[in-house]
Simulated scan of single mutants.
Amino acid sequence: MDVSPRYRESWEGYWRATSDTPGEAIWDIDPALSAVPHSELLLPHADTSLPVVDLGCGNGTQTRYLATLFPRAIGVDLSQAAIDHARRADPAGVAEFEQLNLVDRDAVLALRERIGDANVYMRAVIHQSEPQDRAAVADAVATLLGSRGRAFVTELTHASKAVLQQAMQDPGGPPEKLRRVFTHGLKPADAEDIEIPDLLHAAGLTVLACGEEPLPQTEHLSDGTRIDLPATWYVLAQR
């Protein structure tokens, strides 16, 4: 199974057009506002002797922070261009990065066989995946956990779509970082709210904890207000 050529090229095109400047990607926020608070929610449930896999790692900013908490941190992304960014940003090799299509079950199983049970960090991947691929992404989380791993998954709620649409109509014009997302054909906040928990349950995952916390972005409106996108988070284990 594979993602559509359009979807793959949208992400490759986006990352090829993105510089190595920290924060140029709208979601490339400082870990202090992302992986740090997220890990504080995950760690009480997690075995920190296991590795952690950052699904949809992009340029690896959050992965490098996770490498300070776990003995091994592996960032994976559909886009090879994103992985190239991540490796350039980590010359010391604090984390590991590799291209992985989460929809390719054989590839996910191969990673699981190689590293064993693992913790998973996934930030806003299901909501922008194409509808036919979302179940496979949730299944990838469950596969990588095994019996001992725990996952932190956060996904944009449908309310984020209204926030994004309002930002695109900002009196100062569409924020450049957000405009680039849509120019490359990416579709954030495309899933309905009920779809995410249903997909996680169907994948054999059980919710250990959950809550609502916005995902801060690196872009601002013309009046200086930071764009924060409504999101729901889950700490998960295999049932």
Score class of each variant (00 low, 15 high):
M1K: 09
D2A: 15
S4Y: 05
R6P: 01
W11Q: 05
A17H: 08
A25W: 07
I29S: 01
L33S: 12
S34A: 15
P37G: 10
S39L: 12
S39D: 14
S39W: 04
L41Y: 01
H45F: 15
D47F: 04
T48Y: 02
L50M: 05
L55R: 00
G56M: 04
N59I: 03
T61C: 03
R64E: 10
R64Q: 11
L66I: 13
A67L: 01
L69V: 10
L69F: 00
L69E: 08
P71H: 04
V76H: 01
V76N: 06
L78Y: 09
I83N: 08
D84I: 05
D84A: 15
R87W: 00
A89E: 04
P91W: 13
E98P: 00
Q99H: 07
D104T: 13
D104A: 12
D106Y: 05
V108N: 07
L109C: 04
A110T: 05
L111T: 02
G116R: 01
N119W: 01
V120T: 11
M122S: 14
A124L: 10
A124V: 10
V125C: 05
E130W: 03
P131E: 13
Q132N: 14
R134M: 12
R134T: 09
A140H: 07
G149N: 08
R150W: 00
A151G: 10
A159K: 05
A162H: 02
A162G: 04
L164M: 15
Q166F: 04
Q166K: 12
A167Q: 00
Q169A: 15
P171S: 13
R179C: 07
R180V: 10
H184I: 05
L186G: 08
K187Y: 08
K187I: 13
E192R: 14
E192Y: 04
P197N: 08
A202N: 12
A203P: 02
C210S: 15
G211W: 04
E212L: 13
E213D: 10
L215H: 02
L215T: 11
T218V: 05
L221R: 15
S222L: 08
D228E: 15
A231S: 13
Y234I: 02
V235Q: 07
L236H: 11
R239M: 09
